[in-house]
Amino acid sequence: MSATPGTLAGSRAPFAERLAAVRGSRRRTMDRVMRTVALAAAVVCVIPLAAILLFVVIKGAAALNLDLLTKPPKALGTGGGALNAILGSLQMVALAALVAVPVGVLGGIYVSEFASRRSARAVRFGADVLAGVPSILIGIVAYTLLVLPFKQFNAAAGSVALALIMVPVIVRTTEEMLRLVPRELREAGYALGVPTWRVVLSVVLPAGRTGVLTGVMLAVARAAGETAPLLFTALGSRLVNVGEFGQPMDALPLFIYNGARQPITALNEQAWGAALLLLLFVLGVNVAVRARSWGRRAG
């Protein structure tokens, strides 16, 4: 009649202790289960990205050809390409950057170099809130101020709308990056009797150059993918428009939207091709720019 020592010890242990042991293992199981659930949630977050990339690459690559890059669209669904949209996006985003970069960088310089604590917080807050304004409303504002008075949809209004989307991004990154520039650099400048404006422009700004450029590139990528602000401003156009900012102009996002809405297979396919082009540009910029800053943070 000899029980194993284990069970004997188990049966002799006080009730409370045995209960604690059971609970302990239950807690450990719970721990393991919930950590697996958390891992699963993280995997679920990645699935949409993978699925979107997969389909855009497969369907886009099938539609990608020289015509898409070099020809304007022909009559509904009979071929042609997206040249009007590619050139339009390039021009409108370039003009938007021309407006938004000086405004954003100088605004960022103000916050980081000159503003009192209170006004810095106000501008920062304003930029964050402006970035949260739905882009379709930015489109309405640009329409009201720049399309309605001229009774003509025009690319310039589209550029201004895109600029409004870019400015808050540039202000915030410029400010954050300039604040990382060591104080000693500025002090060295002042010690040489250099005026403030030159210290900022020839010492601080070059030192924070990479970071500021990061913000500008992210803002450009964001603007390049925006559709809603262009709907009521640049409108879109089937014609190649070079340099006529007083006229309607197409853009890649508009091309995709319009191509997806038509029940015409050829247009749907062109939309996928254009989506691949847009995604290559937007994700290319994001990966290039972010990989650097993430590498730095990790290292």
């Binding site: 977050c45 979107i52 390049a224 989506a275 937007v282 994700l283 972010r290």
Partner: peptide
């Protein structure tokens, strides 16, 4: 992983709509 999830935010809305 954080990097990948943040990339999702960079995909233009119209491309997500197409998908």
């Amino acid at each position: 992983l954080s990097f990948t999830i943040e990339l999702l935010a960079a995909i233009p809305s119209v491309v997500i709509g197409l998908w």
